[in-house]
């Protein structure tokens, strides 16, 4: 009973916090209402007894929103704590698309004949879910993770404003390197 009430309460909070993202007029508030929405979803997943997935959702999303708030503030070029600004763009099309998607998904949920439970859940539901989702493609998924990390590093390296020739000179022999401010390892 308590679980049911908690689940529905979390669901309502998650949706409201998600809507608040577009209603509030500051970027910090928008980022962190999204974080609240995700935390509620993470707690719901905990209630579904997918403990690992639920806790990791909370972990990732809070960290992500902390970073996102920083980037939003950095790239918008205005002091957004002071300047109230609208969080929506191209209102009419966005509204039409989101209502259409919602109706489609809700219809799907209501029309789908959900199966009744057969058997009992396995001991380790997280491992079972992983097997079910990825199965024999686990190696591919693991490799994709590494490729993504390498892509990020490569992207940063390509985008870096100053390369090693700027730091160490044309013959790479200048020591200590010319940096705006020295780093902690003394390279």
């Amino acid at each position: 009973m308590i679980t049911h009430v908690a689940f529905w309460a979390l669901a309502v909070i998650a949706v409201l916090a998600g809507a608040a993202v577009f209603i509030v007029n500051s970027m910090a508030r928008a980022s962190y209402s999204l974080a609240v929405s995700f935390i509620c979803v993470g707690l719901q997943v905990l209630l579904l007894q997918q403990n690992y997935v639920g806790v990791v959702t909370i972990l990732m999303m809070v960290m992500e929103m902390a970073i996102m708030a920083v980037y939003m503030v950095m790239f918008m070029g205005m002091n957004p704590a002071l300047m109230p600004m609208s969080m929506v763009h191209d209102k009419r099309h966005a509204l039409a698309v989101s209502i259409a998607v919602f109706v489609l998904l809700a219809t799907g949920v209501l029309l789908e004949p959900w199966p009744a439970r057969r058997g009992t859940p396995p001991d380790d539901v997280t491992a079972a879910l992983g097997e079910e989702l990825m199965g024999p493609k686990m190696l591919v998924m693991a490799a994709v993770g590494v490729v993504m990390a390498v892509t990020i590093v490569a992207g940063v390296v390509l985008a870096a404003h100053r390369g090693r020739y700027d730091r160490f000179g044309d013959d790479l022999r200048r020591r200590p390197a010319r940096d705006p401010q020295p780093g902690g390892v003394g390279r």
């Binding site: 806790v55 972990l59 960290m63 902390a66 708030a69």
Partner: peptide, 23 residues
Amino acid sequence: DVGVVWFNAMDVLAWAFVWLTGW
């Protein structure tokens, strides 16, 4: 059963809270 990840999720909240206090 995932207490260690729980600790990790909680310690990440510091990013949010300390920054929000400063902001």
